[in-house]
Nucleic acid binder design. Structure first.
Lengths: 340, 340
DNA sequence: GACTGGCACTCTGACTATTTGAGTGCCAAG
DNA sequence: CTTGGCACTCAAATAGTCAGAGTGCCAGTC
């Protein structure tokens, strides 16, 4: 049905269209790629490819452009992910290596990704479900006010102020601090909630009301910390290269970038760092983003991924290079994170 | 030179142009605003206004559009800042009131500002130069590794890990913790640096090397915290309403939004919350943003401002409404911040 | 002296051919 | 199966025309 040469033709069409952004005709195709056959032959193949739904004509008697299905086939079968040059790799490590903390890593990653793919970059902050309690601090601000600070293993800090129903003495605060820490440090956030309950039970009945208030707030901090899915976005200026149909191509993307919930859905589930998810045009869950593709992958550590990063760009992007860049960046970020 | 009526004409031109985005001619002007004179008269006035440089013609025999100078005069003399409706005010307070912490306040503010002005909103995080140390925590992670946590009065947290040259015992850690806190809590960040030095001097010579390492890192955290000028941006999707000259109007703004240093310069020095800074077109420091205006103001507390917030939009924006919105949001944010 | 109606003039933008050329599909021959 | 040839199609570019909004200026009026 689709012999080798037809696939070659499809590959050539995709590559050409990606490069020029103009419908590609049989003649130009033979000129640019040396296919070793005549335009007429290519035309026949094109007709077949169109029949199968891989390419389409914007209007009768113009060249062909790939359909989403065409890109899909190209990505799955016809292309190999491009590896970066040594210089690029070096640039990545040195750039990411300069980061001072988690936030900085994420910020740099977004920037980097946007720069090398020349697309809009999205990086989800590492999820904390897998992270554990590093330290809990209780600070007395006044007899009726405490500051709780929760520090997690991957360097995030959550803080809360508790208003107490009655005065608390320093003795109890110290006691609480040490008990909380011995009970919780090292625990996963997900498990920590349950151990929290047992801590409360070991206090004198008089102190229960105070401890309860504190525990409640701390619990809140835990769940907030786990639930929050922060996202960083960058490279919006690259949208200007989308082409001219502003209203249709650029606007929806800009709007999506404001809605982090949407972005999370777009990125999808975090996959293994080696596995790239590519969502082409209508394949992604938003109607308005039908002219947009997403290339994403998980990152975090060798074996399991903590979060997702990726880029958003026009369907007619250069998939091999983009995929290579996304994969490379994900790897290096994982590496940096593993080290710290 | 410019009598009352000429100014009326200028005002009418600005208002009309802002509403329609189309050059406005003498006839349309008298039709829409009841100026009580004939088109011919208006034409004479227009000629005078053009002579003075307040309006200009895109090409011979088209209507007039205001120049930057025209907008300037309009903003300074011809318009009054619009106050928000009661409903809007209420919406603002309730929206901002729902914030749980400083970051959330900022995020909400950006969103809100973008929404009501329908422009790109920029909010600088409150500067910490005026903030003070609330608490310093020292946590032992291993005998050679400490975690330092600096908590400031306005709720920011800075943390650092210190690798020690030799093992440290729990005794010293506790000692250090209490001394650091007694010495520093309540101090301004700016002053804290000096008191830090004196703390170090009071330790036994044996411990000096350890303490020195810690103090150095802490100092770093201080300066980082003070120096860092974070910024939040939102409402980029509103750029789609800029008009059609994409390359010239939208692209430079998108690019500027990525460069926080540029944004800081654009926002300018934080002014008193009551005082609005308006920078029109070429008045702002970037050549590429010559078709762009900035409306900004300080916020933070009644008397002094901690940081700046504002919006960026096309020169032909609705200044009275925008200025009103910016001022109102700044006030309410200040209020919220003062309460917490 | 300031305002107005009238008039000739200008220029853009919209509209309508007209043309050009890249590209197609199909067919008959190699 | 491939290819050259040919008639056909349609978008985009070019050119020409026209209407209308707007201007500047002048002479007359209040």
């Amino acid at each position: 049905m689709l012999d080798e040469r037809k696939l070659d033709v499809l590959r050539a069409i995709v590559e050409d269209y990606v490069a020029t952004h103009e419908p590609v005709g049989s003649k130009t195709l033979v000129d640019r790629h040396n296919l070793g056959v005549s335009p007429a032959t290519v035309r026949n193949d094109m007709a077949a490819l169109e029949e199968e739904g891989y390419i389409t004509q914007p209007h009768t008697s113009a060249g062909r452009i790939p359909t989403d299905a065409g890109y899909r086939l190209f990505v799955d079968k016809l292309s190999t992910v491009k590896t970066l040059s040594a210089a690029e790799k070096k640039a990545i490590t040195s750039f990411l290596g300069g980061a001072v903390d988690l936030d900085d890593v994420v910020r740099r990653t977004v920037r980097l990704l946007a720069q090398i793919t020349r697309q809009v970059a999205i990086v989800q902050y590492p999820s904390l479900n897998r992270s554990s309690v590093r330290h809990i601090e209780v600070v007395t601000m006044s007899p009726r006010r405490l500051l709780l600070v929760l520090i997690t293993s991957n360097g995030r800090v959550e803080q809360r102020i508790v208003e107490l129903p009655k005065d608390i003495d320093e003795q109890l605060v110290a006691d609480l601090r040490s008990r909380l820490n011995t009970a919780m440090v090292g625990q996963r956030l997900t498990e920590a909630a349950t151990s929290l309950a047992t801590v409360a039970d070991n206090f004198a009945p008089d102190d229960r009301s105070l401890v309860a208030a504190i525990v409640t707030t701390l619990l809140e901090a835990f769940t907030d910390e786990m639930g929050e899915q922060r996202i960083a976005v960058g490279g919006a200026a690259n949208l200007t290269r989308y082409g001219d149909d502003f209203e249709r191509n650029v606007k929806p993307v800009l709007e999506a970038l404001e809605e982090h919930v949407i972005l999370l859905k777009l990125l999808g589930e975090a996959t293994h760092p080696q596995t790239l998810t590519v969502r082409i045009g209508h394949e992604n869950p938003y109607e308005e983003l039908a002219t947009t593709s997403v290339v994403a992958t998980g990152y975090g550590s060798k074996s399991e991924s903590l979060a997702t990063l990726g880029i958003v760009g026009p369907t007619h992007m250069d998939y091999p290079s983009t995929m290579g860049a996304v994969r490379a960046v994900a790897r290096y970020v994982s590496q940096i994170l593993a080290e710290s």
